[in-house]
Every structure is written in C-alpha cells, then in structure tokens.
Design a protein around this nucleic acid. Structure first.
Lengths: 227, 227
DNA sequence: CGGCATCCGTGACGATACTG
DNA sequence: CAGTATCGTCACGGATGCCG
C-alpha cells in the first residue's frame, strides 16, 4: 500500500507521486541505484528512518514493482533488495531533483550525514555532460565504466546507462571498485567533489586545474584530458 | 517551514526533497506553472487538500523562495500566488515525474479528478520532442506559443521555454486562450489527448490520422503538418 | 464571498524495545 | 541480521467559524 492516500487525479505526475511521493521512498531508490543492498545497509545509509517505516516502504515498493527481494546464494544466504527495471527508470527523477537541489546544497551542516556514494549522482550528471559539448547531436557522449576514488572510499559509475543498465540489475553506480577494467579512473578530493556537486566547478575545469587526476584509455578518459 | 523534518543529508536530491517533498507541494507547483492563481482557484483544482494544509504550504513555499504573493491592481484587488524563477525551475522535476508516471496512468478511475490544463505537461513534453527528430543536435526544436483546444476548454503552451519563461512570471502554460497570436493551434478530442498523455500515440501520429487538427504558420505548425 | 484560522479524529511517522 | 511490536507525537484531511 503506497500512500494509502491517493491524490485521485488523472495526471501522470500525480500518479507518480502516489507511488514515490511518500517520505523516504525516493531516497531508498537512490540507495538501490547503487546496486542490491541488504536491509541493514539501507538502514545504516538512511540515518533517521525508523525500522518499521523502512520495512513498510520496502514492502510497498515491492508491491508496486519497484524492487524485488532476493536471497543471495549460500554461503551467506541473506536477503537483498534490488531495483526492477521500472524502479531504475526513476533515475531521471532523482537527477532532476538533484539538479534543482544543487542550488540549495550550500555548506555542509554539522547535522548532515554524508556517504561517499551520494556523490555518484552529481558526478554522473557532470560526466554525462562531457560528451555533449560539441556536435554529435543526440549523440551518446562517451559512455563507459568509471571508477572514482575519494579519501573516504571509492565507487564506480556506469556513464550513459540512462535506460539500459548494464550489469544485471538496474544499478547505474555502486560502492567499491569497478566490477571490471574501468574505461576511466578519477582520483579527487572531497572538496573538489563537493564543488562539482554544488555546480561551482565543472569536471573539465577540475581536470585542468589538476584537482582531478584522470587515468584510463576509454574515450571518456581521453575526452577529459583533452580539455 | 518546509518539512519540519529535514533528512539531514548532504545530498542535493535529499535537499530538494526537504523543500518539495511534502505532500501537495509539487502539485501546487504544477498548478502555478499555469500562471498566477488565487487561493480559491488552487483549492478548487487540488481536490482533497484541506484549507489549512494549502495555506501552510503556500507560506512554506513563499518562505523557501518558490512563490510570491502579490496583490492584483484594483479593481478586484485580490491576492494571487505565482512562481518565482526558482520555483518554475521545478518544471524538469515535474516532467520527469510525469514521464515516469505515464506508464502507470492507465484508465481513468471514477474517483479521479480531471482538469484540462493537466494535459499541458504531457503535451508540452510531446511537442518538445517534435523538433528533436532529425539532425540539429542540441537544437532548440521549434519553439513558440501553442494554443490547444479541447471540448472541456482551451489552454496554451510556451514550447521551448525550458529555462526562459517568456511572459513575466514563470508560467510555461496557462488556462484559456493564448495571450497573443499563437504560432500554432491544435484542436483535438479528449480521448486523443489522453492517448498522447499515456504515450500510446505520438503527436505526429495523431496529426497524420486526423485526430489532431493543426493550424497556424509557425515553424512548429509546419513541422507537425510535414510528418 | 474569498482567505484563511481553529478544532478534532485518524493515520503516518520516529524512537526504542524486543524477537526469530 | 532482519525485521515486528509498542507507543508517543505530529502531520494530514474534514468541517466549521471568523474576519475583512
């Protein structure tokens, strides 16, 4: 039962909000865009959500076709939640929200939690803007697997996976090293990552300044070096 | 005060949800994208919202810089609410939500309310896809003022006003006839409008079938006739 | 009459404790 | 580890009243 209260409006935006308009739902999607996760991990990366609300949302989301619950093969037969394709198609919604909220991000408040993979969404947006600079029109830009290394940890992105997630589930980014040989590897500091997230700096600028070190042989790595 | 409960996460999407994640807020934005409106009109077009919640949201939104309250010049000196530029920049969020929710729109339920201008958002999306068919790359498509006539009433669209709203406030569509000579006029039935909103039919198809009649001399009108 | 403020019942939410 | 159970609080929806 999504919001037991539907807006009861014949409008696709209102229908979307009937499904994902509840508190925490879109943030759970943000977490699951990083790949399959366990209940406890979700609870740890969503500080403030109570256990019953998280359980309730996960049930609603499964019922609404956004997620599936799956038992990992033994050993360590635990349950993981992962997005369905339908669920991963919420990426543009989170991108639009992130783009709008970027202007209000400001400084980090002492009460604000941070996770390394929360930078994945803004970085993904920043990197998908790289190929769109010149001609090529509706062009794909340069896609590929990108590994990002921060002090706090690393994560990886699947650039250009807008509606064709690559590795199995609907994940377009994930914690930890890239599952394979990355087409590009980015090394940068938290402050630089923050500046890019806030839109104060572009990736190209940061590469030029040496605040981002690019390695790798993919077309995106080359494009980033050839500012 | 927006959701008195902030997510307290240093993430731009979470920040956006701190501001617009409350119940009804984004639907109020959808209404105000049609131009300045009075309290009573908002209440009439948002069936189900209680008076105090609507008043509270409007205060929060003004406080957060999404809307302004303005007194119309006499006679008829009433207060109207209108979007600030910041508020109108939520259009991409509503577009993304609408695009996603379109798959779940389905048939109209007996409990569903409908308003003619709720078709403006999906039609706007459909029309902005017209120019992107062929080359031209990041091209502007064909913009212009479009008047849409349904049985239930007419409304008008400002196609291509993504981040440059044209007439004064941040409205990108509005009730009633176009405020000026439209570059194109579309006449169509509710069922056709519904089919386009649900993504079952494109505008081009509907024009070809004769379910949409196009008049006007703008580039968009020509593009629609030259399927 | 339009534009809210007040009151009240219900349900959603957040924190903590507890269980298979 | 993965939730369920309990409980206090607050947000929401509906109705009604006030005030210009």
């Amino acid at each position: 039962m999504s919001p037991r209260r539907s807006y009861d409006q014949y409008c696709s935006a209102a229908r979307a909000l009937d499904t994902v308009g509840d508190r925490w739902t879109l943030l759970i999607v943000r977490e699951l865009l990083a790949g399959p996760r366990r209940y406890t991990d979700l609870h740890a990366d969503l500080p403030g959500v109570s256990t019953d609300v998280l359980a309730s949302r996960l049930k609603d989301m499964e019922r609404d076709g956004l997620t599936t619950r799956r038992r990992l093969p033994p050993p360590g037969a635990v349950y993981v939640y992962e997005l369905t394709r339908r669920g991963s198609e919420l990426l543009p919604v989170l991108q639009a929200l992130g783009a709008w909220g970027q202007a209000a991000l400001g400084e980090r408040r002492p009460t604000d939690a941070v996770r390394a993979h929360w930078f994945a969404l803004p970085l993904l947006r920043a990197l998908e803007g790289v190929g769109a600079g010149e001609g090529r029109g509706a062009g794909e830009g340069e896609g590929g697997l990108v590994e990002v290394r921060l002090e706090e940890g690393m994560f990886h992105l699947q650039v250009g996976a807008v509606d064709g997630p690559v590795h199995g589930s609907g994940s377009v980014y994930g914690d930890g090293p890239a599952p394979g040989v990355p087409d590009a590897t980015l090394v940068l500091g938290t402050d630089t990552c923050t500046a890019i997230s806030r839109g104060e700096s572009t990736v190209a600028e940061a590469v030029r300044d040496g605040r981002v070190t690019v390695s790798g042989h993919g077309t995106l790595a080359k494009a980033l070096r050839e500012v």
